[in-house]
Structure formats: C-alpha cells, structure tokens
C-alpha cells in the first residue's frame, strides 16, 4: 500500500516538474557565478555561497541553502496540501476508502510519500549541484569549515549527508501543517496556501524583536541550523532543538489530522 502510494508519486508528472524547478534556481546561480566570477562577500548572501568560487564541491550546500527558505517549503506545502485534498477533489478518495483502504493507513502512506518526495528533491538538488559545481566553479580543495579550520573531503561528505537528513526533517513541520489542512478541506490549493500563510507568518515573526517569546517555537526557527553541522566541532545545540521542535509539530499536527480524517464524512 505504501509502495503503491510511492509509485503513484513517482509516476506523477508534477513530481518531476517540481524537482526540475527546484534545481533551476541553484543552477542559474552557479552559471551566473561562473560567468561573472563575482561571489558574495564572505558572511553575506546564502550560506556557503562565498566559498564555492574557490571550491565547487561545496556547491551542494550552497544550493540547499538557496532553496531552503522559500522554494523547498513551497514545494512541500503544495505537495502535502495535495495529498488528501487532491484525492478528494478528483473523487478518487471515496474509491480508495471503499476499496477498502483504512483511513489511518492512507494517512500514513501519504506522510511517507511526502517524506520520500522531500528526500528525493533534496538529494537530486544536492547531486545536481555537485555536478554543476564541479564543472563550473572552483576546483581548489578548500573545504574550510565555517569555524575556519579545514575539513577532510570525507568529513564534508558525511556532514552533507547529515545536512540532507536535517533539511528533510526540517520540512516535516510544514508537511504536517499542509497534511492537516489537506484533511480539512477538499481543495488542494486552499491547503497549500494555508500552510504557506503559516510559514510566511513564522518567517516574519522571526525578524520581529517583539515576537521574541514566540521565536523558539516557530517552525522555521532552526531551519538554517544545518550550517552548524559544518562548524568544527559540530555545534549540536540548535540542531537538536530543531529536530525536537519539528517532532512536536509532527506529533501534534498529525494527531489532529488523524483525529479529523478518521472521523470525518467523506462527501467529496
């Protein structure tokens, strides 16, 4: 059942178009950097971007930092918002339920498919960026950690994998909001927009000093903490908090989604 849901995801043209679009911006940035040779000053612009002119193999991290604040969460919100509401809108939800597929199982399968989508997207973006970075950008093995010491290529590789995992986890909060909304409405668009509104509010509150008491609980608060994986030694505090916070969002929101979906009238 989960396998079928995954194959449905992989066979949708929309999945691949979204991943293509996610790759477009980092690739454009790489081309611009290569052509102009104008990197951002160290400490400004997306993380790692100032380093990639020297070492193109760091570009996957820069690419992830580019898509993380906006592109990736939009894709996740649209994808997760569509998961149940899309089936409701097309009418296939009622046929799944009378097939019968248990409502809890369906929700779990949808969640797994959302996580798989995020992981797939992040991995493909990182892989593409590695290829693009190696081809177009600098080839001095720099591998400087954010703290200034040098990391071995193996260390960079391991930490990149950890970063991919952390970024995927960071998206689960958004995914859970969108999934909850997706069980509340029969309109995938409404669910995606609702989740985005939540994200935009969260990003805005993060910039507002008056919202300081709320900030540790905002879903976007620890997203960029993946950079901490590249300190020497790794600075775990925010990463652990980030994972914990996402876990709370996932448990609460998915609990609500489950409670709603398993008791609701399917009238679509």
């Amino acid at each position: 059942m989960i396998a079928v849901e995954l194959s449905k995801m992989l066979r949708r043209p929309r999945t691949w178009v979204t991943i293509l679009l996610l790759n477009a911006l980092p690739t454009l940035v790489a081309v611009l950097l290569a052509v102009t040779d104008l990197g951002p000053r160290p400490g400004s612009g997306p993380a790692f971007l100032s380093a990639v002119l020297a070492d193109g193999t760091l570009f996957p991290l820069a690419a992830l930092a580019i898509i993380l604040p906006l592109f990736l969460p939009i894709a996740v919100a649209v994808f997760a918002g569509d998961s149940v509401a899309g089936e409701a809108q097309s009418g296939t939800l009622r046929y799944l339920l009378v097939r019968p597929v248990g409502r809890t199982r369906l929700l779990v399968a949808k969640l797994v498919s959302v996580i798989a989508f995020v992981l797939l997207a992040v991995v493909i973006v990182a892989a593409t960026a590695y290829v693009v970075g190696s081809l177009l950008l600098g080839d001095q093995p720099l591998a400087a950690s954010v703290s200034g010491t040098t990391l071995t290529p193996e260390q960079v590789a391991v930490r990149t994998v950890l970063a991919i995992g952390y970024i995927t986890l960071s998206m689960l909060g958004v995914a859970s909001i969108a999934l909850l909304l997706s069980t509340l409405t029969d309109s995938p668009l409404a669910a995606a927009l609702g989740a985005l509104a939540f994200l935009i509010a969260s990003s805005l509150l993060l910039t507002l000093d008056a919202a300081e008491v709320l900030q540790p609980y905002l879903p976007t608060r620890y997203w960029l903490s993946f950079v901490d994986l590249f300190r020497d030694p790794i600075f775990w505090r925010d990463i652990v908090r980030g994972i914990g916070l996402q876990a709370v969002y996932v448990v609460v929101l998915l609990g609500a989604a489950w409670a709603n979906f398993t008791t609701k009238d399917v009238t679509s």
Binding site: M1, V4, S7, K8, R11, R12, P13, S90, G91, T92, R94, Y95, L96, V98, R99, P100, V101
Partner: peptide
C-alpha cells in the same frame, strides 16, 4: 472487499491509463 461500488460518478487519475488506474486500485487493498 466483497462489495463493488460506484458512488456519485466515476473517478480516476487522469494522467494514467484506464488499465493503470485499475491496477493501482487493485494493488491498494
């Protein structure tokens, strides 16, 4: 599992073929 149903009009995944739709639904449960 012993009931076949048609409720308020048919529904299918539009980008897939009729066969693929039947196969998907069959594999689901």
């Amino acid at each position: 599992p012993q009931v076949g149903a048609l409720v308020e009009g048919p529904a299918a995944y539009a980008h897939l073929s009729g066969r693929a739709n039947l196969a998907l639904l069959d594999a689901m449960g």
